Simulated assay, not measured.
Amino acid sequence: MAASCWGLPQLLCEFPSLPNKSLRVMRKGIDEGFRDIVRTYSDAIDAATAPLQIFLNMLEDAFTKAPWLLVLVLLVAVVWFGSRSWKTVVGTVIAMLLIGVFGLWTDTMTTLAMVTVATFVAILIGLPLGILMARSDRFQSFLSPLLDVMQTLPSFVYLIPVVVIFGIGKVPGLIAVVIYAVPPMIRLTNLGIRLVDRDVIEAADAYGASPRQKLWGVQLPLSLPTIMTGVNQTIMMSLSMVVVASMVGVGGLGKNVLQAITNQYFTVGFLNGFALVAIAIIFDRTSQAFGNRIQKHQGAGHD
């Protein structure tokens, strides 16, 4: 065999791979088989995603068609309830007024609807799975590698199977956002429950508490600050994924950012990016402050 790089044989310089023809046949077989499955169960897939479509459309209509002043008042009320900080409230009012002045109100409301539904679905999925992980080491060892893959896989890759299965539209984008955003909710729910003081669990056992009573009366309340951190991270990841999900038909600010990148519209991209950052900061400050208040309240209760 002829010498190659560094005087080594060719076999050691170039990794031996399958012939191109074999790779093409294999990829074609997998792709066609996947498409056949999707065509066969397309009606069932549409029926399964219909509630998500209805929920998302209802919330988006409520946000975009309601008077802007009413939406602003409700948003400020939520921020005040979560943060109890006038600085956060004032910052929210200023940011939302600037968003409206620059003509981004409707797109922002569309993005808010998407993030709200994605966060809600992620919590519905992540909370039970996190509880199961905390109660079963075997389930944790099974699910942890899947979560590692979900968190390290490039966000664009999520769109490929989602588009193949669900097509183009808001619901496929929503599903991609949920897949990307749900791992922190699962992990931090698991972590919060496992970090509950063992002495407290033993005290509950001594009082004859059932596993359900321990979960709802002891473990979940004490792990609520950690769970709220998971909610915070889920919201942040949902917002970051909205831009990528705009490639499959999700509207709102993400669509505008994608168009700005494609057409090199600096001002459009900057303004829509500012709106996304403003929403992210509002949600981040509110959820963090709410989690801190819960933690202080529990600390005062233990004292």
Rank of each mutant, 00 (worst) to 15 (best):
A122L: 08
W80A: 15
R138W: 13
V171Y: 05
T88M: 00
F81R: 06
G91K: 03
F102L: 11
S155V: 13
P154V: 08
I160C: 08
L97I: 07
G169C: 10
V115Y: 04
L98T: 07
I125W: 05
L112D: 15
L146W: 10
L97N: 06
F142V: 12
G103L: 08
I131R: 01
A122N: 13
S136G: 14
A122P: 04
I160F: 13
R84G: 04
L124H: 09
G167T: 04
V89N: 00
M133L: 12
G100Y: 10
L159N: 06
V149Y: 08
A134K: 12
T110M: 15
T88Y: 04
G126K: 05
D137G: 09
G169A: 11
T110R: 15
L129H: 00
L112R: 14
R138L: 13
P154A: 11
S155R: 12
T108G: 02
V157I: 15
S136D: 15
V90M: 05
L127Q: 02
K170I: 05
T92E: 09
L127H: 03
D148I: 08
P128V: 01
D137F: 09
T106P: 05
L147F: 05
W105Q: 14
L124C: 13
G169S: 11
Q151D: 02
S141A: 13
L129V: 01
V162M: 03
T116I: 06
T92W: 10
P161M: 02
V117I: 06
L143T: 04
M114R: 06
G91I: 03
M150T: 01
I131W: 00
G126I: 01
T116E: 07
L147N: 07
S141L: 12
V90A: 09
V157P: 11
K170L: 08
V117K: 07
F120I: 13
S155L: 11
T88H: 02
P161D: 03
M109N: 04
W80M: 14
G82I: 05
L112Y: 03
W80K: 11
M133I: 10
S136C: 12
G100R: 15
S136W: 14
